[in-house]
């Protein structure tokens, strides 16, 4: 048996964790530092009774798929931004918000 599996939470440890979580929750505007990134990504309804945007006859013949998917190359915009100074530390809790 793996040693790690024997690690357990005592009743006291669970109570301490829940108690401290409730204390954090009761604080006004808690963890503002972690939660300040807000982004307005609103979802809209996707069912319409109209033609799709950009629907024209001419557009159709131009955009018809020619069966050469292997020639496709993704733009890969994020590759250019990669570096080794990551902000993705395991220690922190980062929050990102998509607002309605």
């Amino acid at each position: 048996m793996n040693n790690k599996t024997t690690r357990t939470f005592s009743a006291a440890a669970l109570a301490l964790a829940l108690g401290s979580a409730l204390t954090v929750a009761a604080l006004p505007a808690q963890a503002a530092g972690d939660m300040e990134k807000c982004f307005g990504v609103a979802l809209k309804g996707q069912n319409d009774c109209a033609a799709g945007a950009g629907t024209t006859c001419a557009g159709t013949s131009k955009t018809d798929y020619q069966g050469d998917a292997w020639k496709l190359v993704p733009k890969g915009t994020c590759d250019k931004t990669a570096s080794h100074t990551s902000s993705t530390g395991f220690g922190q809790l980062a929050a990102f918000t998509a607002k309605s």
Partner: peptide, 24 residues
């Protein structure tokens, strides 16, 4: 690191300093 990637794309400017090879 797809959460970081997602967050970077919520903004018009792409953030610099993403290392996507880290698990997240």
């Amino acid at each position: 690191a797809v959460a970081d990637l997602w967050a970077a794309h919520q903004n018009e400017e792409l953030s610099q300093g993403l290392d996507l090879s880290l698990p997240q």
